[in-house]
Simulated assay, not measured.
Amino acid sequence: MSTVRGRYVRDQQAWAVDQERLRHEQALWMLGENVLFCLLWTARDHDQGLVGLCSVCASDRIAQAYGQSSRNKCPSCFGTRFEGGYRALIVRPAVFTDADDSQSFTARGTVAPQEIHLETTSDFRAHSGDFAMRGTGERLQLRIPQRTTLRTGFGTPHQSEDGTAYNLARAAVEDSTSVAYLIPPATETLITILSRSGPTPPSFGDVEVLRAPLIPLHERD
């Protein structure tokens, strides 16, 4: 005589995600620093109809032929080819590793790269090429952001529900001549903004700009 055994399929435990995310964010607020992240428009955003092409530099023959901005330092799109340049400016806490000054010889001459690692909150999607602006006045370009999700069941994890520390990234300090320094606010204003402090996390609603969802719908997975 055979016995039919029931099947147990583990459900997602939302409390586990909440606890893990809380620990990460608490450490970031206690040990980190305020950072202004500039999230740039991407080609996928344009394909989704979220943004149009830059009216200043993306309409000439060069831009149309090569599919990129004809001006790296365009004051309207900051070299992205898309109107406005960025989809969001947000302030989040972040922890940085130390950087050692060094020099390397490249085809462009002698450069002094300063590459560091950072971790910040999981509530937004970053891409390679986005910028992080620090309270020291430095502006860094993000490289190869990574995503971390917590699996608590058999379903596919999604960043908005299961993300715990998505924004782990390498970042390199930009030269003072970089287009990153054209993005508002000016350096003096940036330092003042990021110096805000208090017994609770300060509000930055007066300086943040949101032109699209922080986690695009087509990149939720």
Rank of each mutant, 00 (worst) to 15 (best):
T200N: 12
G198D: 04
D206K: 03
P201S: 05
A186S: 14
E161W: 07
A180T: 00
A169D: 01
T192G: 10
S176G: 12
G163Y: 00
I193A: 08
A165W: 05
R196L: 06
R170C: 09
S178T: 00
Q159R: 13
Q159W: 11
E174W: 01
G198R: 02
R170A: 11
T164E: 03
I193L: 12
A169P: 03
S197C: 12
P157A: 06
R196A: 09
T200R: 14
L190E: 00
P185Q: 08
V173P: 09
P184I: 02
P201M: 06
P157L: 03
T200V: 12
I193S: 07
V173C: 14
R196P: 01
G198M: 02
A172Q: 15
T177H: 14
S203D: 15
T164W: 03
T192H: 11
P184R: 10
A180W: 00
A180V: 00
I191A: 11
I193Q: 09
A165S: 10
E188Y: 11
R170V: 08
D206T: 07
P185A: 06
S195P: 07
Y166V: 12
D175L: 13
T192I: 10
V173S: 06
P199M: 13
G205T: 04
Y166C: 12
L190V: 01
T187N: 15
S197W: 08
I191D: 10
A180M: 00
S178G: 04
T187H: 14
A169I: 03
S203V: 08
A186F: 12
T164K: 03
T192V: 12
S176N: 14
I193W: 04
G205I: 05
E174S: 10
A172L: 15
S160Q: 10
E161Y: 07
L168C: 09
P157E: 01
